[in-house]
Every structure is written in structure tokens, then in C-alpha cells.
Design a protein around this nucleic acid. Structure first.
Length: 866
RNA sequence: GGGCGCUUAGCUCAGCUGGCAAGAGCACCGCCCUUACAAGGCGGCGGUCGGGGGUUCGAGUCCCUCAGCGCCCACCA
């Protein structure tokens, strides 16, 4: 095929043109008949569908795409689906606001429900005027809202050039995901891994749901130590420091370290609380820190997680006072033992928010004289739900858990089976697993999510029998227990004595997301596909969700399949704003991708993204984007030059080193050409090794460096000869070398710059560069026939000196050099001889003289300007 | 409290198993209409490789230590 090169190549419209072509040609279509060995399967992160894509998405998804494209060119059949994470709280909140509805799991499904155009509750997250709808109706609305976003997301991904197979998408709330999620739950129930427990758990009082360890975040809050006076058995004062004086009625014991001599006499005795006069035991426990406060602490049910530990290990009483809405409950805790006046104190506190209760308690303590001194302000870390606004409380509730604590060693071993890129990220996984302090809490008291697929019998006396859950057959999944009826019951028996009741809760979003390899891979739904793609090859993700998504996926795969879910994990960094600050909506420094794509082009944006090394946080950098833009233009122009040469003297047979026609013996005859090909072969090895190690950034950097040197030095040196200045054979040598180099360079760049490489490839080759074979260094070395790379190095150095001389003399590069003296060592001068004619033409040198010397130096004598 | 990462030109970063007379791009300064490219090309200026100590013929590269920045984890009354 003779190349057809446009006169004025341009980047305009390339994205649109090629995105359409790729779709029409099915360039990235997955072949489900490929053997397991050939398949390279990627567990693509499903982005949260809420609003718009973030520049961070562009960054990390580009990294994955370069790997996908590399593997595809290496001959792997790439399984590269896309998911949408529309399950969970963010979508729930958006649907409530947008449609003015709220979910009520007690309502039946209404197939005719359509939301009004102007709902009275729109825009108010917890409006009383919101329309109550059933969970299935609510889920339908979620789908409706997320569908639009998903289309917008897909458009951006296509613009960016992700080589995803768009016929394979899933959503984490779709039927397939719900089925997999519920099936996974039931299987863990059968294995005894899933269990329910009535226990104190961390609780968000605004969202009114239990929260898992993985969703916690510490925030520094200002607080104060309050010194309270308890009374010892002999009436003597016992002083404790607390930041939670409002929990005084929930106090069940005091605790000090067993070795603390100050308090040893008190162990086993009882003291009385201020205000309430409740007798509480004094206990010893190693967790008590003698250096903290007065060294003796008040244990309440429950002020913090340490309280829970003490309560459990010391078998203490329960006197909960905090309601699920974050207020002091109305009914007092067990209080037979309260002193006189305690009831009045309680009346002062009941129904108050914790903040109000704290203030009032302090006043009461001050009045009774039991507050010693003034509160001492401190700043300390407090646990929050990562999406929450108020500190977490601890309340007792019935929840479902997956057992992880008993399996930490096995989970650590699974982590060690994975190949981590970069390797140090494994430490984060391990510190998380080692730090686990509770099983995985999977139930949530929310609405939009995958329901727990369970019902419970209701006894004739009306009590719910949680110990004997009713479960559906797997064939029925997915089920919604709020509307579906368990086998053996009638719909009319719902919530009736002798009937059943549906579990009102949903599963944690991670309980579904942890099954993305199974969902995308067709677990149980398509056993043939699943057998070919699972375990997958690659999990790409950012480092912030190692403890959630990565960990939970390892957990599920370990229990369900007895294996790791993938063999490689590639962790990308974050994107920082141009000032290297973390981006956040509140700071208003979030960069959206579309304007960047439009200004610089997708290839340039990808070039910026791919220059961020694995795991390293990277700043948005307009300078870097310009560099990428320049590079793509350079590829266009350099290709045009090379191919226009070949159009003049069409080579026999198609281009490309893998094609028969290119490997003709002894066709590359010139030492300079051979040197360039030898260097190129080294580059191919380097880039391949880097990619095999998931270091796309290194592969890009090397290729880019070679390419610029190729343009600046080799092309300049070879230009005249290629035009035929020295006859046919030297020109053919140049043409062959140029064709080989271009074909190789385009393929090396293809994973990074899919658009410009596809465009240039289409000028001279049949088929897509993205399905072309990855370059092989062996073929280049054959063509280079023992060429010495030193020829190119020395020639480039000499040419550089000539340019410097002309620049210094302020003359044109076309100015004539009358005499060129090159001094260098014998081996280098020997190499130079092979390129002497090329240098002469490129530098317009009349006469070149060489002299042996220890150190390289060049004398350039320029012709007098005429 | 435990752990991880980073610290190389004004800025952003390469420099992988020690051999470098310290690199790239951007920025800055200067030159050049050169038949692939003037929304370009060429060249120049610029660094005691965070501090200190050690190993070695030789250290940006290995070891120890200190400091600063960032992050992860932790039962933070």
C-alpha cells in the first residue's frame, strides 16, 4: 500500500472521527471464545454516578487504558468492561432532592407511579412534604436519574479514548448486580460467615444508620476535659476527667490500670456518681492509661469504642441514654439506685441534644460542687462517618456482619499473593487488615441499595423471630423483601402474627462493589464467560479505597472462590490542583475534564495523565498539557515527512517490521541507519519491560525521549540522503530505516496517543494500529545487522556542535561550514566515519578533518557571509 | 504511638541492579523563514542531588542518623 498523506495534517476532529470508527469496527470488542491464557481481564472501577466526572477519573482511567492497549497489542484478548456505581447514599440523596420523594419500605410497589413535575418536596433533603414511595419505586427513580449521568460519563470516556468494550456495562444497582450481591450474601450465610448480632455499633445520628469501621474518619475536634468528683466508699473524693459529662447517667464503672498504686485500694469497691448517686464498681484494666487525666476513667454505655471494650471484657451493666436521633432518651436507664434529686437531674436532660445536655450537665455539676475547677479545653481526634456532620455515637442495634476478624491471617496471605504496583502499597493493605477491630458490618438502615434477601417469622404473639430468618432460593433472586413474599406465605400475612416480616435493611454499598469481578464476569449467570475471566488479571484503583473496595473484594473472593480476585493491583495516585493542593468541592478548586479535552485534545490529556507515575500524586499542569499537544503535532508532522518520502519511492510490500516485505536482506546498509535501528531496538526492550512491570510512565518517557532525538538528529542527518543526494542505494537504506522506525514508534505511542497514532497508521497501513502487534526488538536488530549505536551518538554530538557554532554566529542553519575539525578518541572517530557524509550534508560542511584526541572537541569554521 | 512515601536546576519531575565530566520539559535569555513542523526549530543560562556520618577505588544511587513535607494505620477517658 502506497501511503496517502494529507497536505496539511491536523488534529481537529480526530477524536470524533476515530471514536466512531472504533465503535463501527468493533476495534475493542471482547472475543468471549478466546482461551483463558490469551485473555487479559480488567476489573474496571465503576465510577460513582453523581454529577460529573472528575479530573482524577481521567488520570487513573488513562493509566489503566494504556495497560489495556499494551496488552491488546501483545496479543491478549482484553476483557475491559465498564460499570457504573449508582448504588448507595449519594444517589439516594440526589433522588430524594430531585424527585421530592422519600423511601418507605412499608409501602407496596405501585407500578403506575410517576413523579409529579413540580413535587412539593423537591430540593429539600428531608422534607415532610416529600412523597412516600415504595423501595421498588424508589429504585426505579434512581435508575431514571442515573441513566442520564451514565450517558454523559460514557461520552467523556469515549472522548478520552478508553478502549472499553461498551457492549459490556453494568450498574451496581442493576438486576444482575443485585442478584450477585444477594447470592453472595446467602452463600456466606450458609458458610456461617454472615451472622447477625445485637451489639453496640457506631451510629450516625443524622443518617440514622450503623456505620462500618471502613467508613470512619478521624477529625480533630475541640473539646474539654471536665474534672468530676465521685465519692469513694469512705466518702472520700475520687476525681475523674471526662470529655463526655452528659453521659454521666450512663456511667457503669470506673477503671484504672491494675498497676496503678493510687487506685489499687479502690479496686473491687464501689463509688457513687455525682448528681445521680448511682453506685458503680471500680475495675482494673490494662487499657487504662495512668498518665491520662487523673489516671482513672469513667466508663459509660457508650462514650467511645474503648468503653465498648471495657463493657464487654469487664461484664458491666448497660445503661444506654442516647437515642438513635442523637438525643438523650426520654425514659431513664435502670435507676433503682438513684439518689434523691437524680430524677430531677434526669428531667433536665431528657430529650435534649447531646450538646445541650452537656451544657446543662456542666451547670448542674457546678451547682452541686462536683465539677472541680473549670473545663480544660483540648483538641482531640473524634470518629466521624466519612460522609457525616456530627460525631458518631454508639448505640445498640441488630446488625448483619461478615466475619473477618477470625480470618485476618488468611486475608494477609491473600494480599501477599497479589502483585502490587507500586509494591509499597501492600503495606497499606496490611496495616488495615492488622488493624481490624470488628467484623465487616454489612447492614445499613437506608433505602437505596441491595436489600438483605431475608424475611423473619412473626410469632403468634407478634414478636419477630430474628433467629430463624427465611431465605429465598437462589433461583428467585433478586428479591425485595419489602414487596416479595417468602415461600409458604401469603402477601396478606406480612407483619401479622403468625406471618412474616421483611428485613427492612439494605446492604452496605461495598457488599455489592466487592463483587465487581463476579458481576462483570457473569458469575453463575454465564459460567462459560466466568471461567475465562476469573480470577482477573488486573484491579486498577486509587489508594484511598484500599481498605474498602480492594479489601472487601479480596474478602469476598477468598470466601466464595478460595482465591484472590485478580493477580495484579495497580494503584494510582490522586490529582492535585495546579498549586499541589488536594482538590475538593468545598475549596472550589476541582478541575473538570471536558474543557481540558477540548482545549488540548484527548491525546494531550492522556499524555499528561500517563506521565504521572504509578501511585504518585500528580498536579494538573497546563505546561505538561501543552507538551502533550506539541508531541501529538510533532508525531503528525514527522510522520508526514517520513511517509511523503516513501510515497515518492514506494517500498516493496507493506510497511512494518512484522511484514514479510520489510525484512529484505541487507537493505538497510548505511551505518547511521543501522545505529538508529539498534537504538530503537533498545527502546523497544526498555518500553516492553516497563509495561510488563505496569510502569506505563516509564515506557512513555523513554519513547518520547527517543522520538524527539529521532526528529532532531536522525531525521536531520538523513534528510538529504533520503532525497537521493547520494544515489539510490543510500536512499533506499534511509527509506527502509524510516519506515521501520515510524511503524515502531507509532506502535510504541499507540497506548498513550490513540488518536494521532490511529490517524497516521491509517495513512499507510491496513487495519488498526490498536490491533497491530507490539514491536519486537529482535526484528529491529535483524534489520540493524550489528549496527553500532555509537555512530548515531557521535554524529548527533557533532551536528550539535555545528548548530551551536551557527547559532553563536547568528547565522542561518543553512550557512556553509568551510572546515570542520573533529577531535575525539579513535573508536568514536571510527564510528563518525560511518556518518561523515550525512553530517556533511546536514551541516553543509565543505571539508571535514578528524584528529585523535583524549577529549571530544569540534572546531567549526564558517564561510564569510557573502 | 506504629508504618509508608517524598526531599535532584525558579517550577514539575527522570535518573531502575553504585561508574555522571549531574539529565529532561516548562520558565527565562538569545538566534534562525532550514523544501515535516514558525500555535515551529536551534542554542544558552541555571544544581555543592534536604543536613550529618559511614561503606567503597568510586555514592544522587547502598547503610545509619537527623530534619521538613505528605499519606496510611491505631482501643485518642
Amino acid at each position: 500500500m502506497s501511503p496517502t498523506v494529507p497536505d496539511k495534517p491536523s488534529l481537529d476532529g480526530l477524536e470524533h472521527k476515530w471514536a466512531e470508527r472504533w465503535e463501527a469496527d468493533g476495534t475493542y470488542r471482547f472475543d468471549p471464545t478466546a482461551t483463558r491464557e490469551r485473555i487479559y481481564a480488567i476489573d474496571t472501577p465503576p465510577p460513582t454516578v453523581s454529577g460529573s466526572l472528575h479530573i482524577g477519573h481521567i488520570f487513573s482511567y488513562t493509566h489503566t487504558d494504556t495497560i489495556a492497549r499494551f496488552q491488546r497489542m501483545r496479543g491478549r484478548e482484553v476483557f475491559y468492561p465498564m460499570g457504573w456505581d449508582d448504588n448507595g447514599l449519594p444517589t439516594e440523596r440526589r433522588v430524594q432532592n430531585h424527585f421530592g420523594v422519600r423511601c418507605d419500605v412499608s409501602l407496596p410497589y405501585d407500578p403506575d407511579f410517576t413523579p409529579p413535575d413540580n413535587p412539593p418536596g423537591r430540593g429539600k433533603s428531608s422534607s415532610d412534604r416529600a412523597i412516600a414511595v415504595s423501595r421498588p419505586n424508589f429504585v426505579e427513580l434512581c435508575h431514571r436519574l442515573t441513566e442520564t449521568d451514565e450517558k454523559a460519563f460514557e461520552a467523556v470516556w469515549r472522548y478520552l479514548g478508553l478502549s472499553v468494550d461498551w457492549s459490556m456495562t453494568y450498574a451496581t444497582i442493576d438486576e444482575r448486580s443485585q442478584r450477585a450481591s444477594q447470592r453472595g450474601f446467602l452463600r456466606l450465610l450458609d458458610k456461617g460467615i454472615a451472622y447477625q448480632s445485637e451489639a453496640p455499633t457506631l451510629w450516625d445520628v443524622d443518617f440514622q444508620t450503623a456505620v462500618a469501621q471502613a467508613e470512619l474518619e478521624d477529625r480533630n475536634e475541640t473539646s474539654a476535659y471536665h474534672r468530676l468528683r465521685f465519692r469513694g466508699p469512705d466518702g472520700a473524693a475520687v476525681e475523674i476527667d471526662t470529655t463526655r459529662p452528659e453521659l454521666l447517667p450512663a456511667c457503669v464503672a470506673l477503671v484504672a490500670h491494675p498497676d496503678d498504686e493510687r487506685y489499687q485500694p479502690l479496686f473491687g469497691t464501689s463509688v457513687t456518681t455525682p448528681l445521680f448517686g448511682a453506685p458503680v464498681p471500680v475495675k482494673a484494666h490494662a487499657l487504662a492509661d495512668p498518665a491520662k487525666g487523673t489516671g482513672i476513667a469513667m466508663i459509660c454505655t457508650f462514650g467511645d469504642v474503648t468503653d465498648v471494650i471495657w463493657w464487654r471484657e469487664l461484664n458491666l451493666a448497660t445503661r444506654a441514654v442516647v437515642e438513635r436521633d442523637g438525643r438523650i432518651r426520654d425514659a431513664p436507664p435502670p435507676h433503682d439506685f438513684w439518689a434523691q434529686g437524680a430524677d430531677d437531674a434526669w428531667d433536665e436532660l431528657r430529650g435534649k441534644t447531646l450538646k445541650q445536655a452537656r451544657a446543662r450537665t456542666v451547670e448542674l455539676l457546678r451547682e452541686s460542687g462536683d465539677l472541680i475547677g473549670e473545663p480544660q479545653a483540648i483538641t482531640h481526634a473524634v470518629k466521624f462517618y466519612e460522609k457525616g456532620n456530627r460525631p458518631l455515637e454508639i448505640v445498640t442495634s441488630r446488625q448483619w456482619f461478615f466475619r473477618t476478624l477470625d480470618h485476618t491471617e488468611a486475608l494477609l496471605a491473600r494480599g501477599a499473593e497479589l502483585a502490587w504496583h507500586p509494591p509499597y502499597m501492600q503495606a497499606r493493605y496490611e496495616s488495615w487488615v492488622r488493624g481490624l477491630n470488628s467484623d465487616w458490618l454489612v447492614s445499613r438502615q437506608r433505602f437505596f441499595g441491595v436489600p438483605l434477601p431475608l424475611w423473619y417469622p412473626v410469632a403468634n404473639n407478634g414478636t419477630v423471630d430474628f433467629d430463624h430468618p427465611l431465605r429465598p432460593d437462589e433461583a428467585r433472586l433478586p428479591v425485595d423483601p419489602s414487596t416479595d413474599v417468602p415461600a409458604g406465605f401469603e402477601a396478606g400475612q406480612r407483619d401479622q402474627p403468625g406471618g412474616f416480616t421483611g428485613d427492612p435493611d439494605i446492604m452496605d454499598t461495598w457488599a455489592t462493589s466487592s463483587l465487581t469481578p463476579q458481576i462483570a464476569g457473569g458469575w453463575e449467570d454465564d459460567p462459560d464467560l466466568f471461567g475465562r475471566v476469573f480470577p482477573m488479571d488486573l484491579r486498577p484503583q486509587a489508594h484511598d479505597i484500599i481498605r474498602t473496595w480492594l479489601f472487601s473484594t479480596v474478602v469476598r473472593s477468598h470466601f466464595e472462590h478460595g482465591s484472590v480476585p485478580w493477580s495484579h493491583v495497580a494503584i494510582s495516585g490522586f490529582v492535585l490542583d495546579p498549586d499541589r493542593k488536594k482538590m475538593s468541592k468545598s475549596k472550589g478548586n476541582v478541575v473538570t475534564p471536558l474543557p481540558l479535552l477540548e482545549e488540548y485534545g484527548a491525546d494531550a490529556v492522556r499524555h499528561w495523565a500517563a506521565s504521572g507515575r504509578p501511585g504518585v500524586d500528580t498536579a494538573v499542569d497546563p505546561g505538561q498539557l501543552k507538551v502533550g499537544r506539541r508531541l501529538t503535532i510533532k508525531v503528525l508532522n514527522a510522520s508526514k515527512f517520513v511517509l511523503s518520502r516513501l510515497a515518492d519511492t514506494p517500498p516493496e510490500g507493506p510497511l512494518g517490521p512484522s511484514d514479510e516485505g520489510m525484512a529484505g536482506p541487507a537493505e538497510v546498509t548505511e551505518p547511521l541507519d543501522r545505529a538508529m535501528l539498534a537504538r530503537l531496538a533498545d527502546l523497544v526492550d526498555d518500553a516492553t519491560t516497563a509495561f510488563d512491570g505496569y510502569d506505563y510512565a516509564r515506557a512513555l518517557e523513554r519513547t518520547e525521549a527517543f522520538f524527539w532525538a529521532f526528529c532532531d538528529d536522525y531525521l536531520e542527518l538523513v534528510k538529504s540522503r533520503a532525497y537521493g543526494s547520494r544515489g539510490d542505494e543510500p536512499a533506499v537504506s534511509a527509506d527502509r530505516a524510516l519506515a521501520l522506525a515510524l511503524s515502531t514508534i507509532l506502535r510504541l505511542f499507540a497506548p498513550f496517543l490513540p488518536y494521532v497514532t490511529a490517524e497516521v497508521w491509517s495513512w499507510c497501513q491496513v487495519g488498526s494500529v490498536h490491533r497491530a502487534p507490539w514491536p519486537e526488538s529482535a526484528e529491529l536488530r535483524t534489520a540493524a545487522s550489528e549496527g553500532d549505536p555509537l555512530v548515531l551518538d557521535v554524529a548527533a554530538a557533532v551536528l550539535g556542535e555545528i548548530r551551536k557554532a551557527k547559532t553563536t554566529a547568528h547565522v542561518s542553519m543553512r550557512a556553509e561550514v568551510t572546515t570542520l575539525v573533529v577531535r575525539d578518541t579513535a573508536p568514536r572517530l571510527g564510528a563518525l566515519a560511518g556518518a561523515a557524509a550525512d553530517i556533511g550534508e546536514a551541516g553543509r560542511v565543505t571539508e571535514m578533518v578528524t584528529e585523535d584526541a583524549e577529549v571530544f572537541s569540534v572546531n567549526v569554521t564558517l564561510a564569510e557571509p557573502s
